[in-house]
Design a protein around this nucleic acid. Structure first.
Ligand SMILES: [Zn+2]
Length: 723
DNA sequence: GCAAGGTC
């Protein structure tokens, strides 16, 4: 991943292929500098215990402040100012004050209207919107605590956002000249103590990279959002909130593309062979594993032949017992996935509940990607506390017997630079709602399962072939749970048991039933919120804290709607992607994130400066905006049609979209083409005529929506098919 | 009012 300095951002991004997007999945660790573990550099460090005077330590959140205070002293003095807790620790020659932020307290803001806009400044978040009111008391408290200190220590999480959070507080309320950085990758006592003995000077490269990320996202997001809104205002006079951004727009594009595929899908008929065999008086259905047969005629011939032969031959029989390892403790994505699978909770709902459980001190930090439990954690202590909860009492006493007190959890491969996997703290829950309890229960059980023994499964599988044609392969399998192991603690992954008798290699097995079964090719998968979130994770956009939220933004903008748990793009969503793909293609691609990451990495390495990167972004956007503005009225019209504000004079006869060809919009026109094109294949397979073809696909459930709409209106369209 | 990113 290299950026050629002379190329523009556009060239760079457009040269990025989809293949590279995929490669990112593998290369995740090396390309994501968002959370960084810095290599040891030879630098002068300061020991907090050698500093004299007033030392203000700034943590990222109240819980972290508490842990830091306890790592620095056995009994820090807990105080509170404007309702915000802080801690005082006396040293030989000074006084340490551990204070806390609450994530970002400042954000970028402009008082300028319209676009292009490149003038912005950092302002308290509570002044920017009516949200984030809670940040006001944090700022007031910090401003008070920071006055006249001799040292300021940024002890926020050691990632670029933490660097920015601490930097801005010191910038506004302290003195950057008197600042130090504490660097730790977990909030454990040992690591915290070590980091405060080795305070470094302020991490300017990280700060610069972080500030740059904020500015780039702001410049791209605000300008394009405003351009979209302004075009609608120009064309229809209406005000509507529209938005685009580095994370939300590629996500929307992903859904739009999937949805278009589904709506243009025409299933093809195919034939499968349905066969039952008999063994030891058991009748067993065997699954056809060969290539689908395309025509009924061929399928009938084969079945007739098979019936005449009367038996299948065992090609391979395998019997094995295997161990099923327990799953690791949850990271946020895994929890969201399981809550969706088991309880149909949206990722956003799961996350909100988990955050509440965390604030109630019932579970550890939930916004983590880690599947690893910290070895320093007192597992036994947590279990003892948990066993005071009735539901877990017996499970835990069992677990302690089963493990003979040796508590060693499985660890998953995924990691996080600042937080471990999610685990219960052992604090006894009070007054949990039904859904809160469900999430809490998943977390506890998954935690317990991580210590349990493996499950033992016995598995039998048989492959049979039709002796006259070995490509005709059939399969049946059986499964039995021999030892429950961890499944006892986490029963949500219980494999289904099924009996299968033993077979011998080469054995001839009698066929009791043979028929053909008509099936259809499968449509593209339905899209759900959790699938969208997993996709974002896989391509590496958004963070644990933002993915679910950004998906909801797409719903709030009415780019998406939910139809019985399934996600669909709206006409507006389609329109937004059409417009952005043409005028701001960069913002629709995940490679913009890769580009940001590359630039930030260079800033961190000191080979590029923030102002250079921002200047490039500005120049790129100015060019794009110029070409957008040339077509602004027309773009505004298009979006207004999709919003239902205006009706196109040249309207598609099947929807409110503007006509593209033959009085059809581009989607219905494409549907018509697909119908005509697919006919040949249907004719070949089924020997159907045109009318029969249409009536057949119209009835099928998986046939795309646009396809059906076109068929239903063939008279209106005046399309007649010439053979 | 618009982004994405923290956290209450
Ligand atoms: Zn149409």
């Amino acid at each position: 991943m290299k950026v050629k300095a002379k190329k523009s951002i556009i060239d760079y991004i457009l040269s990025y292929s989809k293949k590279q997007e995929k490669e990112h999945v593998k290369a995740e660790e090396k390309t994501l500098p968002r959370k960084v573990t810095e290599k040891a550099k030879i630098k002068i460090t300061r020991n907090i215990w050698d500093l004299t005077g007033k030392i203000v330590v700034i943590a990222e959140k109240p819980k972290a402040a508490n842990k830091i205070a306890l790592a620095l002293s056995k009994n820090p003095i807990r105080k509170s100012i404007y309702g915000i807790p802080y801690y005082m620790i006396k040293t030989k020659n000074g006084l340490i004050i551990v204070a806390s932020a609450a994530g970002h307290l400042y954000g970028l803001h402009t008082d300028q209207y319209g676009y292009p806009v490149f003038r912005y400044e950092w302002k308290p978040l509570y002044q920017i919107g009516h949200k984030a009111k809670h940040t006001k008391k944090f700022i007031t408290a910090l401003s008070k605590l920071c006055s006249n200190a001799d040292y300021y220590v940024n002890a926020c999480d050691y990632d670029i956002e933490g660097s920015v959070i601490g930097y801005l507080i010191i910038y506004f309320h302290g003195d950057l000249e008197k600042s130090l950085r504490a660097k730790f990758s977990s909030l454990t006592i040992g690591e915290l103590r070590e980091s405060f003995r080795k305070l470094t000077s302020l991490d300017w490269e990280m700060i610069e990279a972080g500030l740059c990320r904020h500015e780039l996202d702001w410049i791209w997001g605000i300008n394009i959002s405003r351009a979209l809104m302004s075009s609608v205002k120009m064309a229809s006079g209406k005000r509507v909130i529209l938005s685009a951004g580095r994370v939300q727009t590629p996500t929307l594009r992903y859904i739009v593309e999937k949805d278009i595929e589904r709506r243009l899908f025409i299933p093809l008929p195919q034939y499968s062979l349905s066969i039952n065999i008999s063994k030891n008086n058991y009748e067993i259905h065997v699954e056809y594993k060969g290539k689908a047969v395309e025509t009924k005629k061929k399928a009938k011939e084969i079945i007739k032949d098979i019936k005449n032969t009367g038996y299948l031959t065992v090609k391979k029989y395998e019997e094995k017992k295997y161990w099923l390892n327990p799953p690791p403790a949850f990271n946020l994505g895994d929890l969201q996935e399981e809550a969706a699978r088991i309880y149909r909770f949206s990722p956003y709902k799961t996350q909100s509940i988990a955050e509440k459980l965390y604030l109630d001190a019932l579970i550890s930090y939930p916004r983590t990607n880690s599947q690893k439990l910290p070895p320093t954690l007192n597992y036994k202590g947590i279990m003892n506390k948990l066993s005071r909860i009735n539901n877990y009492k017996e499970l835990i006493s069992n677990l302690l017997v089963e493990t003979r007190g040796v508590l060693k959890p499985v660890q998953g491969p995924k990691d996080d630079p600042a937080h471990p996997a999610i685990y219960p703290t052992g604090v006894k829950p009070k007054d949990l709602g039904k859904d809160e309890w469900k999430i809490y229960d998943l977390i506890v059980r998954r935690f317990l399962a991580a210590f349990a023994s493996r499950a033992r499964i016995s598995h039998r599988i048989v492959y049979l072939e039709y002796p006259k044609d070995p490509s005709m392969v059939f399969m049946a399998s059986g499964r039995k749970i021999l030892e429950l192991g961890w499944l006892r603690y986490y029963p949500f992954s219980m494999p289904e048991e099924r009996f299968l008798p033993r077979f011998q290699h080469g054995e001839k097995v009698k066929i009791t039933k043979a028929s053909i079964r008509k099936t259809y090719t499968k449509p593209p998968e339905k899209i759900s919120r959790i699938k969208i979130l997993r996709w974002m994770e896989n391509v590496g956009i958004g963070t644990e804290a933002t993915r679910a939220r950004i998906i909801e933004i797409l719903f709030n903008r009415k780019y998406l709607r939910s139809v019985g748990g399934r996600v669909e793009a709206t006409d507006l969503g389609l329109g937004i992607i059409e417009v952005l793909m043409e005028y701001f293609p960069e913002i629709t691609s995940v490679s913009l994130t890769r580009y940001f990451e590359g630039e930030m990495e260079k800033i961190r390495l000191g080979i590029r400066r923030r102002d250079e990167v921002v200047r490039d972004a500005k120049n790129t956007l100015i060019k794009l905006i110029v070409s957008f503005d040339k077509k602004k009225y027309q773009i505004g019209k298009t979006l207004s049609y999709r919003l239902g504000y205006l009706t196109p004079t040249n309207k598609c006869m099947l929807c409110n979209r503007e006509a593209y060809k033959n009085n059809l919009c581009k989607y219905h026109y494409q549907a018509l083409n697909t119908i005509v094109k697919t006919y040949e294949e249907w004719k070949r397979r089924e020997g159907v005529d045109w009318d029969k073809y249409l009536s057949s696909i119209k009835k099928l459930k998986s046939t795309g929506k646009w396809i059906v709409e076109v068929i239903q209106n063939f008279e209106k369209i005046k399309y007649s098919h010439s053979k």
